[in-house]
Design a protein around this nucleic acid. Structure first.
Ligand SMILES: [Zn+2]
Length: 565
DNA sequence: GCCGTTTTCGGCCCGACTGTTTTCAGTCG
């Protein structure tokens, strides 16, 4: 289900965590570095192995190369198996408990024998953890809170991962089942940032054989449920996946029903009932008979409505807007003309500026903004001020190259630190555009952001809440206040397109959509990551944003004017 | 375990923040 590179990367990361627990030095960071670079390598390691070029990946030497080959041949690594026995800690789950790192987990394991989330919770409740030196009451209550969050997160998955899994299922079924067509519905079709399940709808004349094929797929780890027209299986990842079968004549109603959201269907039902009808998964009941629909569009039409884009179907007034003819003209991926946040080897990106520029050129972008981290983010190999000036000169040279039409802009992702930004103001003034972001979780985030936006020439507020989906909720912000300041200071809010961020959240963007401008940026750390733009566009659409609200859907001159840069 | 050499060993991203301290260790990015 996962790509081979991702699978290998995760194995190496588990190896790193387990070695960390044993107190091994340096190996963990070597494994993590290799894992990260493998994840950012576009060519599958399977191919590199054939070519004998695995060791060309930074951080991959003889030992790790042998481990990759072993993983490709056997599906695992003997070192990993041995370590799992030696260190029987469910590290993949336990490391999600924020506040507990490998040092603490190693102690909890050796001193209290804790190896699982359940054991951690029990020990915390029984007061055993609070008795250990260095574990105070705040740590214990923090652990109990985190255990709950981790439990919730274990039953939700990122949109990007679910989409990949759903596509695999679609391909398998297209080959293995007598189906006419198959569509991904549910939360994935509505482009929700995370979701609890996969829901597919297949058009077929042979539901029984189709559902048999589905439950027999290699990907179907467990069968959870089965009826004449629907089956649910559990994938290896634990994700439930449902396949609903439908006749071609009833596809519209089935797809609408499987797509939801419940709140949208309720509003639609109320609308149907006003006209004396009633909506069912089969279609529309009216005057004692059921009308079936082959497409959603014809169903909406029967309700006297224009088709409502799946992203909008959340019960946020979209049915009323559709009835009044005031649905927004949503931004699309093809509207995007540039990308305003990305990293290079000047900080924690994996390629140089030129590689990013070439990728942007093939994407047909008018412009990109290079935004390496400001000097304070040590871990990210952040550039000094001298290096940032060097970068300016390098960008100038790339802009003179004839074979790249994309304009490369010089900027920075300045870090919002307690007393402002970590880049001097006169340097920011020289830059084309400035992104400022928080990388810490703090209580006074709103105050810091306010100060940064008012005291420095900031153009874009990057990943405003600093959330990581399924990992942490993000800083609690006074968005009303921040939006007012952004409006006044001509600062755009970023919708970060990284699948693990998608920050600002679409609900917040929706609430403030009429007051402020947005940019959609990939925050790419490799050329390939520039393609996650579509996930950000999805979120903008969920927030009802038209092209006009998205600054990087416009030519550079207009962008610069609207940012007051 | 990787890497780069004044080439086969000795170094290895570093600053902010938090909770627990009584002067700092562990976590996070
Ligand atoms: Zn950032």
């Amino acid at each position: 289900m996962l790509s081979v590179n991702e699978t290998v990367a995760r194995m190496l990361e588990e190896l790193a965590d387990l070695e960390d627990l044993r107190g091994t030095r340096y190996k963990p960071s070597a494994y993590r570095r290799a894992a990260r670079n493998i994840r950012h390598t576009e060519e599958p390691v399977t191919n590199l192995r054939e070519e004998g070029t695995l060791a060309n990946i930074e951080g991959v030497g003889d030992a790790i190369r042998a481990k990759i080959i072993e993983a490709l041949d056997t599906g695992t690594m003997s070192t990993l198996e041995t370590l799992r026995e030696e260190v029987p800690v469910d590290i993949t789950t336990l490391k999600k408990v924020r506040g507990l790192g490998t040092k603490s987990l190693a102690r909890l394991w050796s001193e209290l024998g804790i190896t699982t989330l359940d054991e951690l919770e029990a020990a915390a409740r029984q007061g055993k953890i609070g008795q250990l030196d260095g574990f105070g009451p705040k740590t214990v209550t923090g652990i109990l809170e985190q255990v709950e969050h981790v439990r919730e997160a274990m039953n939700r998955w990122l949109l990007s991962d679910l989409e990949t899994a759903a596509e695999t299922l679609q391909q398998r079924l297209t080959q293995a089942a007598p189906i006419r067509s198959i569509t991904t519905a549910g939360s994935i079709r509505r482009r929700c940032p995370t979701a609890a399940r996969i829901h597919l709808v297949a058009v077929t004349k042979k539901p029984e054989a189709t559902l048999d094929a589905f439950t027999n797929l290699a990907e179907a780890h467990n069968i959870l449920d089965r009826s004449p027209s629907q089956a649910t299986v559990e994938l290896v990842t634990g994700t439930p996946a449902t396949l609903t079968t439908t006749w071609e004549t009833h596809h519209g109603g089935a797809l609408l029903d499987a797509t939801g959201a419940p709140a949208h269907l309720e509003d639609l039902q109320a609308h149907a009932q006003q006209a004396g009808g009633s909506l069912t998964p089969q279609g529309l009941e009216q005057d004692g008979q059921t009308h079936a629909f082959t497409t959603e569009t014809s169903l909406y039409e029967a309700l006297d409505l224009p088709p409502i884009p799946p992203e909008l179907r959340e019960g946020n007034g979209e049915v009323q807007a559709a009835a009044e003819g005031t649905l927004p003209d949503l931004v699309t991926l093809s509207d995007i003309r540039g990308d305003l946040q990305m990293h290079t080897t000047y900080s924690d990106g994996v390629t140089d500026i030129q590689a990013m520029a070439r990728k942007a050129n093939t994407l047909g972008y008018d412009y990109i903004l290079i935004t390496d981290h400001g000097p304070s983010l040590g871990i990210a190999n952040a550039p000094s001020e001298d290096e940032l000036y060097q970068q300016r000169d390098e960008i100038q040279e790339i802009n003179e190259e004839a074979n790249i039409d994309t304009t490369v802009l010089w900027g920075v992702e300045a870090n919002i630190v307690p007393d402002g930004l970590d880049v001097p103001e006169d340097m920011l003034d020289e830059m084309d555009l400035v992104v400022a972001s928080m990388h810490d979780m703090v209580d006074d985030a709103s105050d810091r952001i306010e100060h940064a936006l008012e005291a420095y020439p900031v153009d874009i507020l990057g990943h405003p809440t600093n959330r990581k989906l399924n990992r942490r909720k993000g800083n609690r912000l006074d968005l009303d206040r921040i939006v007012s300041i952004a409006e006044r200071e001509k600062v755009a809010l970023e919708i970060n397109a990284q699948p693990k961020r998608l920050d600002l959240d679409w609900r917040d963007a929706f609430e403030h959509r009429d007051r402020v401008s947005f940019v959609i940026s990939t925050d790419a750390h490799s050329p390939g990551e520039m393609e996650v733009m579509r996930f950000g566009v999805d979120q903008a659409r969920k927030a009802w944003l038209p092209k006009g609200s998205i600054l990087n859907a416009h030519p550079l001159e207009e962008l610069v004017t609207r940012l007051g840069a």
